[in-house]
Design a binder for these strands. Structure first.
Length: 573
DNA sequence: GCCGTTTTCGGCCCGACTGTTTTCAGTCG
């Protein structure tokens, strides 16, 4: 049972209670506990065994009992009871923009609508406008919400909005009435997926700025507009929110709009405890004095906190750490001295060894590991021992020509279904870097897959396990694997775990990478680039590492070349 | 349902915008 499963059950209880019209604070209590469980860096089952579930923020005696019931029996009777009262389709209403608990409840109790399809038919037939508190506009808004839900059910990858986000920000910054413009929201927190873009602008002329924003070719339509806030849609269909504030309010607005909502809620609670108030305009005394603030750090400081980097603002312990001045110095892209997972056209990459090496030189990397696939991965033209040996000779010759970057001979060797490796030890021991990973038999059961990966880690030549859960964000779930057990085995066998920087992998995830590093497992952040261009993905891996609270010391490819070579030669001994 | 260097009961984060309303509820972030 994963933390995620427990969190999901608690979230479902919250949603059901909301639809059934339960007390809002009770609903929020379940939501808060769900987030606490999901964000908890350790294993909830461990906590349960130690009878310490209440260490999770928001979990008290009643929820401890329900979580324990879930862990023991696989379900929660209370949840089962609630499910009997609300048809499953009604829960989906909450995913439609514009519909919250109240509306969902009315649609179900008054019109007995039980699915999105029924809701859509009712709205088209004009049945909704007769309900109390509803009208034609709300009916139309619900229909638009259903369209948006169908079209854009999932979130979009961070990498897929990157260029658009900075184009919009730069366009705003170019306008004379704009004193400052910044991206906020989950984009600034570098979440792996994004629902919409948030921008904050400092200006004395909000009307002018909003007119200008609406006229940008990047913006297709404006969906709502008030005095200081505008919502629109980009040509690509992504929602974009703009907020215009005075220069003196910019830092507070940036903090507020960066979120997360949970982080903000905690800050407001802390302000209250200190006899202050914080909102999007700044920090206030109770008698209405607004403290002047230049930058976000000033607001944190007024609350007795050191600065918290956006990537940590998820209410996962960062406020407590900041109160003790214990926010770690997070890793940054400039700490990365090389990439340890690169494919070339020898297997399924696009670039030649020379081309990826040249890119490494341009970036000032000290080293680059060539790690093409092994023979079993026929679809990728995986290398057999003879081709691997020939490739190694070419790499050694290149190393004699190039001074500024060191190419390392490596392989991404398949972990076969039984946990053995796709090359014999005699081949592996000749290499500088051995990465092992799963590319086949994804449907093994949890125990088989877990044993399979652990067996690979027990091989003395395996340095790194790549993309340990196999997930493809938005496309394929992780295979069944006990990642906590894999992490424990990585510690025991001194095997490095990868944060695969490919934007649709980010595997390990932030939560798992934090778990691994907190146990002392070393991490490698690798692009897994299959082209020169894809080597740029390194930055997304670093974002993920920052969200995992990692420092330079946690990550092996921040080491200088000689230190790294020494590490690779000795860590499995 | 949770939580406490004011509290073990009575609070629980704050504001913009929309739509349906004549003063506010619902949604969203």
């Amino acid at each position: 049972m994963k933390n995620f499963d427990v969190a999901y059950a608690l979230e479902e209880i919250a949603a059901l209670l909301e639809i059934l019209g339960a007390d809002t604070f009770r609903v929020n209590a379940y939501r808060k506990a769900a987030r606490g469980v999901e964000g908890y860096p350790g294993d909830v089952e461990d906590l349960a065994r130690k009878d310490a579930l209440s260490l999770i923020p928001g979990v008290g005696p009643a929820l401890s009992a329900k979580i324990r019931e879930m862990l023991d029996t696989g379900s929660i009777r209370y949840l089962e009871e609630l499910r009997k009262q609300v048809p499953p389709g009604v829960l989906n209403f909450l995913a439609i923009p514009g519909i919250g608990g109240k509306t969902a409840s009315i649609l179900f109790t008054e019109l007995h609508l039980e699915s999105i399809e029924e809701l859509e038919n009712a709205a088209r037939a004009g049945l909704l406008r007769s309900l109390k508190g509803f009208g034609e506009k709300k009916e139309a808004a619900i229909l638009r919400g259903i369209e948006a839900f169908k079209k854009n059910a999932g979130r979009i990858l961070l990498a897929d909005v990157f260029a658009l986000a900075y184009d919009i920000r730069d366009a705003l910054n170019a306008h004379a009435a704009v004193q400052a413009a910044e991206l906020a929201g989950s984009f600034r927190r570098r979440r792996e997926t994004i629902k919409d873009l948030d921008l904050v602008v400092a200006s004395d002329h909000p009307e002018t700025v909003m007119d200008y924003f609406a006229s940008l070719p990047l913006i297709a339509e404006v969906t709502s507009r008030g005095d200081t806030k505008l919502s629109g849609k980009s040509r690509a269909g992504i929602s974009v929110d703009l907020r215009v504030v005075k220069r003196s309010e910019f830092a507070a607005a940036l903090l507020h709009l960066t979120g997360s909502a949970e982080h903000n809620a905690s800050l407001r609670g802390r302000a209250k405890d200190l006899g202050l108030k914080i909102n999007e305009y700044g920090v206030w005394s109770l008698d209405g004095f607004l403290f002047p603030t230049e930058e976000e750090a000033d607001l944190y400081s007024l609350l007795g906190l050191s600065f918290i980097p956006p990537e940590l603002r998820e209410n996962r312990g960062e406020i407590e750490a900041a109160a003790k001045d214990q926010i770690p110095e997070l890793i940054s892209l400039s700490c990365i001295r090389g990439d340890l997972h690169i494919h070339t056209r020898d297997s399924d990459g696009l670039g030649t060894i020379e081309q990826v090496a040249e890119q490494a030189v341009r970036w000032g990397y000290e080293y680059l590991a060539i790690t093409d696939h092994s023979r079993s991965l026929v679809i990728a033209r995986g290398l057999d021992a003879a081709r691997l040996k020939a490739q190694g000779e070419r790499i050694r010759r290149l190393n004699e020509e190039m001074e500024s970057v060191r190419l390392l001979c490596g392989v991404e060797v398949d972990i076969l279904p039984d946990g053995s490796l796709d090359h014999p030890d005699e081949v592996l021991e000749e290499l500088d870097v051995v990465i092992a990973s799963v590319h086949s038999a994804f449907r093994q059961d949890r125990q088989t897959m877990t044993r399979r990966i652990i067996r690979a880690m027990e091989n003395p030549h395996v340095d790194i396990v790549a993309h340990p859960t196999g997930r493809l964000i938005g496309r394929r779930d992780a295979y069944e694997v006990d990642i906590e057990e894999v992490i424990t085995a990585a510690k025991r066998t001194n095997t490095v775990l990868e944060i695969n920087a490919s934007p649709d992998r980010l595997d390990l995830s932030d939560v798992h990478a934090r778990m691994a590093a907190s146990l002392g497992v070393k991490i490698a952040i690798n692009s897994d680039g299959h082209s020169v261009a894809a080597m740029h993905d390194m930055q997304f891996g670093v974002f993920n590492a920052r969200r995992a609270w990692l420092t330079k010391e946690d990550v092996i490819n921040t080491m200088p070349l000689e230190t790294l070579q020494d590490f690779l030669a000795n860590h499995k001994k």
